[in-house]
């Protein structure tokens, strides 16, 4: 039966259902409810919760535990997630899995708590030192958050690469009806983990690292792109939006369709790997593509422009609606589209 759950509580419970045995984190708004919930839920289930001294310590606790094969996760928001980047870089360099949650807050996040998507470029580009990518899921509902979290550990272990759930302040704070999957547990040995016997850990020697990373990126890019297309097949204009802006964007598509305007929506569910395949459905007659995002100066639009360059013939213009520290309203998207169609609004790419 579906019940009302707050986003941050739901993502924490979903991690439990997915078999997470250890959580380490540090309080930061707007993700603190993840820690609060797990602080009592995990002991209830006989699992370990640890309130760490700082963000870096938390990620290295996960690093140590997952090196030994224990399903582990950490969570944070904007600036706290920046502090974790050294450890995330190191998880990637060592090919250790991990599950990470970032409930984004706007801008540098120092003094501001508004909902936004301003961590997009950092999180989809690796974000720290060295060359790496984290598999990033960007849900747009609490149910989808739960469903993505349920598979996150499996995907992380399959590729030996961290998986991140990229949430947003409002998505973490709001409530929606949710149905949880049953509890599951991975009991088999991953084969490479540390057990004291000094067995091979699948460590890749430095000269082979570039080839190994390219192979990993190619496999993830081929297999893990996820998206949802809505009324794209005959669209003259296509919106691209993920997370909460995709919900108002979908409303805008419906409203414009009612007016007889052929528009559609591509909603990336994975933002890395970016779902290039979603753009295959765009008709060759498309007149423009519009990135709709809660950023200040445009971040998602860079991936949209690359996808359009690759997938659409000719020089299709790419426009950007950047709503800053708020989710763009349906009427704002419709109004922005009016400017695009009249030629008043200029393309970004």
């Amino acid at each position: 039966m579906r019940k009302m759950w707050k986003g941050n509580h739901a993502i924490a419970e979903a991690a439990m259902r997915a078999g997470c045995q250890f959580y380490a984190g540090y309080p930061i708004t707007p993700q603190t409810e993840v820690s609060e919930y797990l602080s009592y839920r995990m002991p209830e289930l006989g699992r370990r919760f640890l309130q760490a001294e700082n963000e870096m310590a938390a990620v290295y606790m996960i690093f140590g535990a997952y090196a030994c094969g224990m399903r582990s996760m950490t969570s944070s928001s904007g600036p706290g997630f920046s502090l974790k980047q050294e450890g995330i870089a190191y998880l990637c360099a060592n090919n250790y899995p991990a599950v990470l949650v970032n409930v984004q807050r706007w801008g540098p996040g120092l003094g501001t708590l508004d909902s936004s998507q301003t961590d997009y470029l950092r999180d989809t580009r690796g974000g720290g030192n060295g060359d790496y990518r984290v598999i990033v899921y960007a849900p747009n509902s609490i149910q989808e958050t739960v469903d993505l979290m349920y598979n996150a550990f499996d995907v992380a272990e399959k590729y030996r690469n961290p998986v991140e759930i990229l949430s947003e302040a409002a998505l973490g704070q709001m409530m929606e009806p949710v149905e949880f999957p049953p509890f599951k547990e991975r009991t088999e040995d991953l084969g490479w983990t540390f057990d004291g016997t000094d067995r091979p850990h699948g460590r890749i020697d430095n000269p082979q690292k570039p080839d190994a990373l390219r192979a990993k990126v190619a496999a993830i890019t081929a297999n893990e792109q996820r998206w949802e297309n809505y009324r794209v097949e005959d669209a003259d204009y296509v919106f691209v939006a993920f997370g909460l802006p995709s919900r108002t964007c979908r409303n805008a598509v419906d409203q414009l369709r009612e007016q007889g305007v052929k528009v559609g929506l591509i909603r990336p569910i994975t933002v890395w790997p970016f779902p290039y395949k979603a753009f295959e459905e765009i008709p060759d007659t498309v007149k423009g593509v519009i990135s709709v995002e809660s950023t200040d100066a445009g971040q998602l639009i860079e991936d949209v422009a690359l996808a359009v360059k690759k997938m659409c013939p000719g020089n299709v213009p790419v426009y950007g609606l950047f709503s800053g520290q708020k989710i763009p309203k349906t009427k704002e998207i419709v109004a922005f589209f009016g400017g695009v169609r009249s030629g008043e609004t200029k393309e970004v790419f």
Partner: peptide, 9 residues
Amino acid sequence: ATATGVKIA
């Protein structure tokens, strides 16, 4: 911090 995680696992 890392050794703490190891011991927990």
